[in-house]
Design a protein around this nucleic acid. Structure first.
Lengths: 216, 216, 216, 216
DNA sequence: TATGAATGAGGATTCATTCAT
DNA sequence: TATGAATGAATCCTCATTCAT
């Protein structure tokens, strides 16, 4: 629980005024939503697990859906935050000469984040298809903001001749597929396997780099 | 509808005795489950959409979950069928000299299948995490049967020196990630984009082949 | 109960297909609404009193308010029906030479109706101020249709010199006040008093007639 | 608001110690009760409208019903006060030779009061049927006190030969019906009409006087 | 076989009321 | 005195499931 709590604080730090009860509700909700799905989780169940009265939930979140959004929206924001910083290019130029290094840095950073917040990530991908608000947020964040950044990055390294000269969309998709493929295999499909993260990540980077190497 | 019907017939041919009403129920259920999720779809809604009485659904499928399983289980079986045929190796030896050709054949075949049954695929991946029966079926089919086949195939081409000498698990994951990444991007995330299937598939294959090419 | 049932059948005859359960629900609802008010009556209470499951109520009437409207709307229609018949004037010319006779006929007829349906009338006047749908129906029926008829009638007897030459609106209000005053006193304020209907009505008519007699 | 406040002060002057907050609560409650009915108004709504915390309401009025009674009871008292004064007969002998003058004085006085307190009057007549406490107060005040006075008055003018020799109950009912009929038509049924109070009142008096004139 | 009325447990939500601050 | 978070019973309503026809 103390682990969970830290994560919660991290994720919801913007609104520092989270009551003890609010935290409990959120922790309980995340746990239940991840385990049984949003629609199959009853508010009474969350209340029981959180050790509060059912009414308390509705005092803080007008509806069950509000609770979901309150939980999931910051997750999306935090997840994508690093890609939305300004002057990303400058940072890149100075920091990562090679695409591979950029890739490694990003994977390590974001993968750690996701591994630590797997329940939230699970809720996110489960509910995006069914919650128009989330879908919209997702499109807006991903498509408009993050994609733009990635495109610049890809073009940057393409100009440097480090990666193959394909439409950035495609390049991004391929890299992203490989990364998320690992994330999902590791956490959702075979969580019981004893993964050697370091090796897997290195190999995934190698796979992507070879796959994207400029034509010989 | 006639399209849908054909697919239904294909998928459920094993039990040839599907009533007209049963078909309608299944079509309606697939549509609704895919659109709103299993838990958020009511049986009365399915009945209305199918044009039958509520009781009729329960005459054919004892519970709502039975209906789900009846829909999803054959899907999984059909999807994986080609990989479960005996003597796959022999076939391979004779048919596909190159891993790339095998890959291409498989992608074309299975991707077409999935594209045609996207609603079902959506239900499948949405519900596997929440339905123990499905999870079990999935593990059994995938892990025990399909993985074994794939392992043999990968080892076969590794012996031939066509692909890199990594643990087959990892090889399979990487290839699978790339393929499913395309499938999901195309159908679920950006269905509105006008995809050039042929090119995308060719490029995906190229990506995988380069990524998996033996070290120089 | 059998009395009640007859009334119910009379009032809701248009839709002859009222189930046994539906009738029970309506009778229970009328009783409770009249006794405690619409807002203070719970659906579970109605269900219990009607001897049906709570769900049954909602199978027949989508919402609690629908139930109210289903009960109250026909009441309003039936109450006003006699005044909406065409050729009322002709009827009058032939039938009632004197305003007094018209008044007597009307009071006897409508007052009997209201006395028999006091619960419904109570619900009607209690809820009209709070239910926009009812308010609208009321205005439409009363103001547009019934008032028009009454106006014609009043003018008819004014031309004959039988009643005072005041704006019909005012004439109608005065007559109506006296009649409803009696109705309300008799049934709502002092229901325990042993009223001599015949005398009271005769006296009320006398009061109205004198009050409306043309100036000497 | 200042209008409202004055009225409040007038009505609740007996307990001079009304806090600013208490006044706000009462004003808010009157407004909401009149608009949506007692049962359909939530205490949180009143609190919000009054700009106080929910708890504050319950600090001053133990229950929601207490609040209602605190609002409605003084209304009833004030409304009826003039009729409860002692030595009414003396007053009458000296002041009003004619029943008509008495009627006019009373209507003008009480009707003005009611017109100014229509919200309260609305709440009163809406809730009397459902609140036993109010019903009892009403019966006690009206039946025991006011009716007695009115009876004396009626008999007084009957002795003088000014009004018809009918049971006072009936006489009172008829006059009251006409007066309340006007009040209700004017304020509740057709508030949007531009009423000419003076004429209407004069005509109402005329109607009553004629209706109650001794037999010729 | 098919129906759809009936069920009643369970769902989300509201609400009057309490109580620690 | 005033607050407003917390409560949990009660509310309206939904839903999967049953069963007589």
């Amino acid at each position: 629980m103390s682990d969970q709590e830290k994560l919660i604080e991290q994720l919801f730090d913007s609104e520092d005024d989270l009551t003890e009860k609010q935290k409990k509700i959120i922790i309980a909700a995340i746990e239940s939503f991840a385990e049984k799905g949003y629609a199959s989780t009853s508010t009474s169940e969350i209340a029981k697990k959180a050790g509060v009265a059912e009414g308390t939930i509705f005092r803080h979140y007008k509806t069950k859906k509000d609770l979901l959004l309150f939980i999931v929206a910051p997750m999306m924001a935090k997840l994508l935050a690093p890609f939305v910083i300004k002057d990303l290019n400058k940072v890149l130029n100075q920091k990562y000469d090679r695409f591979e290094d950029f890739l490694r840095a990003m994977i390590e950073n974001r993968l750690k984040f996701l591994n630590n917040n797997m329940d939230l990530f699970k809720i996110l991908i489960q509910e995006i298809p069914f919650q128009p608000e989330l879908k919209e947020q997702f499109k807006e964040h991903i498509v408009l903001k993050v994609y733009d950044r990635f495109k610049q990055i890809v073009e940057h390294y393409q100009e440097k001749g480090q990666i193959i000269d394909l439409p950035p969309t495609r390049v991004i998709r391929m890299a992203a597929s490989s990364i998320f493929g690992y994330l999902i295999a590791r956490n959702l499909i075979f969580p019981e396997v004893d993964w050697d993260d370091e090796t897997e990540i290195e190999e995934t980077i190698r796979f992507i780099m070879h796959g994207l190497s400029p034509k010989r």
